[in-house]
Design a protein around this nucleic acid. Structure first.
Length: 489
RNA sequence: GGGCCCGUAGCUCAGCGGUAGAGCUCCGGACUUUUAAUCCGGGAGUCGUGGGUUCGAAUCCCACCGGGCCCUCCA
């Protein structure tokens, strides 16, 4: 039977329900118990079966002649319902024939245990809550087709418990991050998504247009520059959990829109933020995964502190034998980088080359949580120079499962230095680097009003959730990941 | 952008030059404690799309569409 025929059959059932005087899409139903609550009531009952009213989607239907069983699923779980002709009467019992897998049903009755011990509602009456016209995915194998899983995520959530658990875990991570920061006196804020000047990260922005103002806007590529303005304004600790947009490729590690946590703390430096990241992530892991040790592939990730803090220079030296300090000019570093097997391009500067060495040779090996610290200044136009080593900045990135999860630094608060760094970025941009920072005069004015010593942190929430749930693709932790538009009907 | 792989019934998959297949779902029948219910019977397809090769194409070739993985790029 083809899909069209199945839909036609279900529409006929819908018509028969209506003909029997039943509204298949009633406006409301007074559910009194979730599936879980109904089962708990039975478990705590001392005598007799407690009366319950539950509701949910029919996920299994076992007809046995004059009696039937069906399974209802709601947000709390699954519960079995037992329906007898003797109790419901011939007419209501006969109308069960018009029900299908996928329909929503409300049931009132008394809880009891079947002879196999399963908690079950013996229906006194039932109410059709919504008739489904399309069949759900097959019950046993679930839904495997990843394209359908992403394009029609509701079917994935219906069919695959693992998918439900992942997104519950994601919600718990975000809630735990909020609790953690709120408890430390951080203020949660919201800053604009539409930016006149894109900045705060090395990335290409999406461009959009505001009709009434007759001007171009960019979707934000970072939260950074607005949050620093708030520190200037006198909020000592702020954070934002917000959507970021970057106009770049799609893969298992990248989605064009993703969720970033950025936090800024006055009178702190990057050392303090490393302590905070360790504490935050290692306290979230048990809440989400039940332990600080989480399985990942055929290994186990251990989030318990302390995490190693490795100077970037040492990490690259160890993996490649290249000491970037020994290559003060781009030309000689480029040759060394190319010899290590990394593809290089002529116009790349020192910063880009070091970043490539990191990505190619170091990052894949950082399975266990680790900090890389002290980055070259060329890579970090918004970070403060390291005292005694002005070619480095006080910056760290942290890595889990071979992926960068977060980035932080002691913030550059010298407005003169910041202007010079912007000018250097503008030079790179003029030379063809589309991801170099744009000079943001409005931000420079803010900085000239005085930014206290401040440390700032960015964490990719999606990748943190991946690490905590063992997901190997970012699409497994984003409900509706970006896909090509499907042509045709 | 490059390479490899995939697309067959609503779902999960087999078939890989010779009449389109299985399980689940679906439809009809039996069944008052089933739970991947069981038993009997019956349906179900533009084999991603369009070209080509061939007596004959789901199968071989080409292009296109969509997806996956790996490179490239990118936090």
């Amino acid at each position: 039977m083809g899909e069209d025929e199945i839909i036609a059959l279900r529409k006929e059932k819908l018509a028969r329900l209506r003909a029997a005087g039943i509204d298949p899409y009633p406006a409301r139903f007074h559910r009194l118990h979730t599936a879980r609550e109904a089962i708990e009531l039975l478990e705590s009952a001392t005598a007799g079966g407690p009366a319950v009213t539950v509701a949910g989607r029919i996920t299994a239907l076992r007809n046995m002649g004059k009696a039937s069983f069906l399974d209802l699923r709601d947000g709390s779980g699954r519960i079995q319902v037992y329906l007898k002709q003797e109790t419901l009467g011939p007419q209501a019992y006969e109308l069960l024939r018009e029900l299908d897998l996928g329909d929503f049903l409300g049931v009132t009755g008394a809880m009891f245990r079947t002879k196999t011990g399963e908690p079950t509602v013996e229906a006194q009456e039932y109410t059709v809550l919504a008739k489904a016209l399309r069949p759900p995915p097959e019950k046993w194998h679930g839904l495997q087709d990843v394209e359908v899983r992403y394009r029609q995520r509701y079917l994935d959530l219906m069919a695959n418990p693992q998918a439900r658990e992942t997104f519950v875990a994601r919600s718990r991570v975000v809630a735990a991050v909020r609790r953690f920061l709120d408890a430390r006196g951080y203020l949660e804020v919201e800053t604009p998504v539409l930016h006149g000047t894109p900045g705060g990260a090395a990335a290409r922005p999406f461009v959009t247009y505001h009709n009434a103002l007759d001007r171009q806007f960019y979707l934000r590529i970072a939260l950074e520059l607005h949050l620093k303005r708030l520190i200037i304004g006198g909020f000592d600790r702020v954070y934002e959990i917000g959507r970021i947009f970057r106009n770049e490729g799609v893969s298992t590690k990248y989605n064009p829109e993703f969720t970033m946590l950025e936090s800024y703390e006055a009178y702190a430096d990057y050392n303090r933020l490393m302590d905070m990241v360790e504490e935050m992530v290692s306290s979230i892991a048990p809440e989400v995964a039940g332990d600080t040790r989480v399985p990942y592939g055929d290994t186990v990730i251990d989030f318990a502190p302390p995490w190693p803090r490795i100077p970037l220079r040492d990490a690259i030296l160890e993996r490649t034998g290249i000491d970037f300090e020994a290559h003060p000019d781009a030309e000689s570093l480029r040759r060394a980088t190319a010899q290590s097997g990394v593809h290089v391009e002529e116009h790349w500067g020192r910063g880009k080359l070091i970043d490539e060495l990191l990505t190619a040779h170091v990052e894949p090996h950082l399975l266990q949580p680790a900090f890389l610290i002290d980055y070259p200044i060329e890579l970090s136009p918004l970070a403060k120079r390291k005292p005694g080593a002005p070619h480095l900045v006080e910056r760290f990135e942290f890595f889990i499962c071979g992926r960068e999860v977060g980035n932080a630094y002691t913030e550059l608060n010298d407005p003169v230095d910041q202007r010079e760094r912007f000018v250097e970025q503008a030079r790179l941009r003029a030379a063809g680097d589309e991801e170099a920072e744009v000079v943001d005069e409005d931000f420079l004015v803010a900085l000239e009003h005085g930014l206290p010593p401040t440390a700032g942190l960015g964490i990719g929430i999606d990748r943190l959730v991946m690490a905590l749930t063992g997901a190997t693709s970012i699409r497994e932790v984003i409900l509706f990941p970006a896909l090509r538009e499907k042509e045709g009907p």
